[in-house]
Nucleic acid binder design. Structure first.
Length: 832
RNA sequence: GCGGACGUGGCGGAAUUGGCAGACGCGCUGGACUUAGAAUCCAGUUCCUUCGGGAGUAAGGGUUCAAAUCCCUUCGUCCGCACCA
């Protein structure tokens, strides 16, 4: 008989610090997680958004990487050839701020931070192929970022123009539209204002239509991310047409989505930036007043100017234009509510059918003409107190009268097109991506300005344009690169004449728009990446990161992918097939932050409980997409569970070691069969949760139930074969979640490495139960439980149920109306 | 204002296809072990109850033999967009 309760010394106590260190050393061997192309297996690319190297991991990182690691380890065991890399988004302002504040070189600061973060990532037991690590601030990476800039330039997708751009004083640089949130800088939260500067742009608007249309292909993306991108791109269909200015050669072009209301135009509204203004106000009696209005409006913050709350104001220019559809002469106003950047910067004013125009016209006493009537309740202009924006029937619209306004929309545009006054037009809210930054710690824009040749690209063979180190870090309108003598000492690559370098660097979002491609071929020194390698590994099968990049990084990366596809560098349309947006880690009802003092340090948790406990807690406490409430007691609970695993396998130690791999399950006792059934049900459930659902919390709870079930054998003999089967499968299932303890316990009982084992498979036969407990309801209320044979037919269930003693008693004297039987589930008896 | 997600015990959450609401964990209660504590193990833990039951998934209504799940209305929370003509 087996002496089941004596444990070896080793199994006495779970000591995470000791075993985690041991396994991390083993995994740190250069080849352990090396990945290569393997055409025998299906590939799987699991990727977490790479971090900015701030110096320390926070719980958000821990959550992100824990999720990714489960995915990668599971897929690898399930037979996929898995690529799971890590890197650092290493350019950016904090490094430069550290240089300003403490005099450290941005590079030194960054590399020290990276080193520490890698140490912390390794302490989490993450399965990365570190051979493929990329750091965007290294010349061997940004050389290709610059090369890609040149590719965009050559394809007509990079251009420099002067424009009113977003400027953040605290960051000392311009920002892209995507990087301004509610009029504030996305990074430092300070108010952004407009500045006229010549800046580099990427022509993302060329791809607006495809970026919108292809959202449909992204069936593996959360809906809300797609909706956010859809809103951001902001496609609208309408017409563009022009109105002649009275007593002038000039025309005003306008865009409208409501061509059906053209007959209702009573004024024209121009943005204060509109170029026509200068021409029409010259010499007008109130010219000074107009200029003052323009100046005041321009001085308003973006927030004020674009808020729908702000009062609509304007000033009459004294000029008129003519509505081409009815010849009506309408006054031209300059207003604070028309945006210059959208459409044509001029808007037709139709007070009766646009709320903003209504408010404006009411304030300044402008005319109103009703052109769409409500068929259900005819409108009377004198009784209206706001615009009528719903559908209706055309009135006061000449030949279009009586038509449904929706029909008229298209007819009127046909008419405009026929008369060559206007055309159909699609507009987008999306603007081109402003990519220059007046900062040092970024990839220099590889352009040289020659007095003779103008704008010239740095020749490919001269890349990278290295960051100089003789710079002064002062904030101003110019990049610190302008203070470097070495950097600016340059001749024109074309004519050899006098020239100067572009001193702005690129938005770091450019660096992060292609890093997932570089992982496929990280050491290539001939090109950014090899096409075949990228076509093998990419697109990313599962991308995991925070929702904060719903637009920014995810939109930019989609844009890059499409451009590189058009350049023949890769063969697919979308970079990330499936996207998982993890929730935040919250403590005491708020996001962890230094200012709130509710930060829990991952390093401390790992030191106290081990990485396995930290990972387990964070995966168990909430579904991945939802915010996660940090709970110190919850962490204790996860630690307890791992101790229970250790303990029960310790109790089973001798049995496990003496058990056989193959045995006849029929030899088991009824109680053992129950445990075996639980085991195989767990295999089924955990596999489904991992493979299809990312339901790590329920997968773990199922594993807890399995371990709880095994506890009924803690002071009873267990069949050694079953004990061995139990341990083998349990450890393989735990491996993706808690890699160290799984590896250690596996090595105690089984040969090889648990992480190189195949994924568990359930035995269909083990799931079968001879008898099943079904629910008996009377009028929908549970009244009895009956144990019946498995798969008992509907007819037999209907026969059995009313005769069960308790049921018979309850339905005595009543009439059975109907019996609904669902095999293996329930019987509902409807009585009267 | 528009668009979206959501609302389940003291708490985190489960219920995947409409079929026993509250799995699992935390907390709490009781017990075992212990001189005692810690740890561990076992049991209990939605609410009400006259112990027969009854009520219950934000509120109200509907569909159905059967609703947390589907439909309608209302309320609330969170997120996104917000003068884009």
């Amino acid at each position: 008989m087996l002496n089941f309760y004596v444990r070896s010394n080793f199994m006495e106590k779970y000591n995470p610090q000791e075993i985690e260190k041991k396994w991390q050393q083993i995994w740190d061997a250069p080849d352990y997680y090396r990945t290569d192309i393997d055409n025998e297996k299906p590939k799987y690319y699991a990727l977490e958004m790479f971090p900015y190297p701030s110096g320390n991991l926070h719980m958000g990182h821990v959550r992100n990487y824990s999720i990714g690691d489960v995915v990668a380890r599971y897929r690898s065991m399930a037979g996929f050839n898995v690529l799971h890399p890590m890197g650092f988004d290493a350019f950016g302002m904090p490094a430069e701020n550290a240089a300003i504040a403490h005099g450290v070189k941005p590079g030194d600061w960054t590399f020290a931070n990276i080193k520490n973060m890698i140490r912390q990532q390794k302490a989490m037991g993450l399965a990365y192929d570190w051979e493929r690590e990329v750091e965007t601030c290294r010349a061997d990476y940004y050389r290709w970022t610059q090369w890609l800039f040149e590719l965009f330039y050559k394809r007509g997708l990079a251009y420099k123009k002067e424009a009113a751009v977003n400027w953040c004083d605290t960051c000392g640089t311009v920002l892209a539209n995507e990087q301004v949130v509610d009029g504030k800088c996305w990074r430092c939260d300070h108010e952004v204002h407009k500045k006229n500067l010549a800046q580099w742009f990427f022509k993302i608007t060329d791809y607006a239509d495809e970026l919108l249309a292809d959202l449909e292909k992204l069936t593996g993306w959360p809906n809300r991310v797609k909706i956010m991108q859809e809103n951001w791109i902001g496609r609208s269909e309408g017409a563009e047409f022009s109105l002649e200015v009275v007593d002038s050669e000039e025309k005003i072009s306008v865009y409208t989505t409501r061509p059906d209301t053209i007959f209702g135009i009573t004024f024209m509204a121009l943005a204060v930036e509109h170029p026509l203004i200068e021409k029409i106000i010259a010499g007008k009696p109130n010219e000074t007043e107009i200029r003052e209005f323009i100046k005041a409006t321009r001085n308003m913050s973006d927030m004020e100017r674009t808020s729908s709350e702000s009062e609509k104001r304007g000033i009459f220019t004294g000029a008129y234009c003519v509505n081409p559809v009815n010849g009506r002469k309408v006054p031209i106003w300059i207003t604070n509510y028309v945006l210059y950047e959208y459409g044509t910067g001029a808007v037709m004013g139709v007070p009766t059918h646009d709320e903003r125009d209504w408010m404006f016209a009411t304030k300044y006493g402008l005319d109103k003409i009703l052109v769409i009537d409500n068929p259900a309740a005819p409108l009377e202009l004198s009784k209206m107190d706001n615009a009528y924006i719903d559908a209706g029937v055309m009135v006061n619209s000449g030949e279009f009268d009586g038509m449904q306004n929706e029909t008229a929309k298209s007819k009127i545009v046909d008419w405009l097109e026929a008369k060559k006054i206007g055309t159909r037009k699609i507009n987008y809210k999306l603007r081109d991506w402003l990519i220059s930054r007046q900062r040092y710690w970024g990839a220099p824009i590889p352009v040289i300005y020659c007095e003779k040749c103008g704008e010239v690209l740095v020749p490919e063979e001269d890349l990278p344009v290295l960051l100089p180190d003789d710079v002064e870090f002062k904030q101003g309108a110019l990049s610190p690169l302008s203070t470097s003598k070495k950097f600016n000492d340059v001749k024109c690559p074309k004519c050899g004449g006098k020239a100067r370098r572009e001193t702005d660097t690129m938005d770091t979002f450019i660096c992060s728009s292609w890093y997932y491609l570089r992982y496929a071929d990280p050491h290539n020194d001939k090109k950014p990446f090899d096409r075949d390698k990228v076509n093998y590994w990419n697109p990313v099968d599962q991308y995991i990161g925070g929702i904060e990049h719903a637009i920014l990084h995810l939109l930019y990366s989609r844009f890059f992918t499409k451009v590189l596809r058009d350049a023949g560098m890769l063969d697919y349309d979308e970079p990330f097939t499936n996207l998982l947006t993890q929730g935040m880690v919250i403590k005491d009802g708020a996001k962890m932050s230094k200012s709130l003092g509710n930060v829990v340090s991952p390093e401390e948790i790992i030191a106290k409980y081990g990485a396995d406990t930290a990972r387990l807690f964070i995966l168990f406490a909430a579904p991945v997409e939802r915010d996660l409430d940090w709970s110190d007691q919850g962490v204790e609970g996860s630690f307890r569970f791992l101790n229970r695993v250790w303990r029960i396998l310790g109790i089973f130690e001798k049995a496990i070691k003496s058990g056989a791999e193959n045995y006849d399950a029929e030899t088991l006792t009824a109680e053992e069969k129950d445990l075996r059934r639980t085991l195989h049900k767990t295999i089924k459930k955990v596999t489904e949760d991992l493979h299809d659902r990312f339901a790590f919390n329920t997968a773990i709870s199922t594993l807890m139930e399995l371990v709880n079930a095994a506890h009924s054998f803690q002071d009873k003999l267990i069949n050694p074969n079953l004990a061995r089967e139990f341990a083998n499968n349990l450890l393989r299932m735990l491996a993706p979640f808690v890699p160290h303890i799984s590896a250690e316990l596996w090595s105690q009982f089984f040969a090889g490495d648990v992480h190189k084992q195949s994924w568990v498979k359930f035995d269909e036969a083990a799931l079968v139960e001879d008898t099943i407990e079904i629910v008996v309801q009377i009028n929908g209320k549970v009244r009895e439980h009956a144990t019946v044979a498995n798969n008992l037919s509907r007819a037999e269930l209907e026969k059995i149920a009313p005769n069960l003693p308790r049921v018979a008693e309850l339905i005595a004297g009543k009439k059975i109306v109907k019996i609904i039987a669902v095999p293996n589930k329930l019987i509902n008896i409807v009585v009267k």
